[in-house]
Simulated scan of single mutants.
Amino acid sequence: MTPADQRHIPVLGRQAIAWLAPRDGGLYVDATFGAGGYSAAILKTAGTRVIAIDRDRRAVTAGFDLVDRSDGRLTLVEDRFSNLAEICAAQGAPTVDGVVMDVGVSSMQLGEADRGFSFRLHGPLDMRMGHQGATAADVLAQASEADLANIIYIFGEERHSRAVARAIVAARKQAPIETTRALADIVAKVVRSKPGEIHPATRTFQGLRIFVNAELDELHLALSAAERVLKPGGRLVVVSFHSLEDRIVKNFLVERASAGGGSRHLPELAQAAPSFSILTKRPVTPDAAEISANPRARSAKLRAAERADAPAHAAGELPAWPTLERAMRGG
């Protein structure tokens, strides 16, 4: 198998399709198209149709060949997956039989130096999955020290976030921080790591990337959108790669699968009926062979659930964490 072929095999891809369980003639949403691995696998089931979404124009352009080979069964849309309900409606498909998501940055994006996602590759500090809005370099130039510390702590889970923020603010007074190498060097001076541990800049890069792309807000919104479009019996399958994402998916499914009848203090306030039944009581994780073939797989977790007959729950408010708009005002 060539490296190009390997790009088309998503982490936990076989398990994801098994839990999605495509049916002949079914309609499915591949909410994170990437290299098209999920879409191609779904289309192997006779008569299936796929609405695929990706906010990355490069991924969409690269997917045109699969669209051409799909005999009209694959529709590929450049958009955010938080908009999947509106996308489905625009395609004349207000309800679907399944939704699959692979959350986070793709291996392709990490391997493109000019995208600025990886501290291992020298390139501009962009980090945008799409092609609009502020870059990571813009955030480093504009955000206050307090906002930078919060961004790196909340989204990167970096316990040295205050020291990193101080170092960034001190460095930008001398020169703009515009490259991956420049940021990685700044972080490495204040975050120490032992041999065998992750690179000192790993969490800072993660935090900035998640923040620039509003990835956790997008995930919250996409899960609610999937709940609205799934038919009873339709399946939701989500693969995530770090604890922040997995916690959101787990909490969403637990909440949606819970039945309630109000509290003993306010018994008249009945809760919404369960809208999902959880299929994976524990998250599915990759085996040793997959981790050996793709070290990035080691942190992957898959959760799956089946849509119940009950109406979708009301969407909750997004968490009150740092926003790009506030950061770009400099506090």
Rank of each mutant, 00 (worst) to 15 (best):
A312N: 09
V11Q: 07
N150Y: 12
P319L: 06
E306S: 05
R7K: 14
E227I: 00
D114G: 04
T75M: 14
K189P: 01
L84Q: 08
A146C: 06
A149N: 00
D309F: 07
A188E: 12
S82T: 10
T95M: 09
T48K: 10
P295A: 03
P3A: 08
T204A: 03
N294C: 10
D68I: 00
D138P: 06
I17V: 15
A89T: 14
L266H: 13
D30Q: 12
K281W: 00
V169P: 02
V99E: 10
S70N: 06
L74K: 05
V187W: 01
K173E: 15
A293Y: 13
D68C: 01
G37T: 11
D102E: 10
D79W: 06
L66Y: 04
L140W: 02
A226F: 07
A136P: 00
A171L: 10
L223S: 08
L266R: 12
A201H: 02
V191C: 00
D56S: 11
P274L: 01
P3F: 09
R329P: 04
Q271N: 14
S39I: 01
A113I: 04
D217C: 13
A293H: 12
T95E: 14
Y153A: 13
L183A: 05
I53G: 13
D217L: 05
S144V: 02
V67Q: 15
R58L: 10
Y153R: 12
Q15N: 06
T280N: 10
A143P: 01
E317A: 10
L110W: 11
A273D: 10
F155P: 00
A222D: 14
T179C: 03
T323N: 04
F117N: 08
G34P: 02
Q174L: 14
A46C: 13
F241H: 05
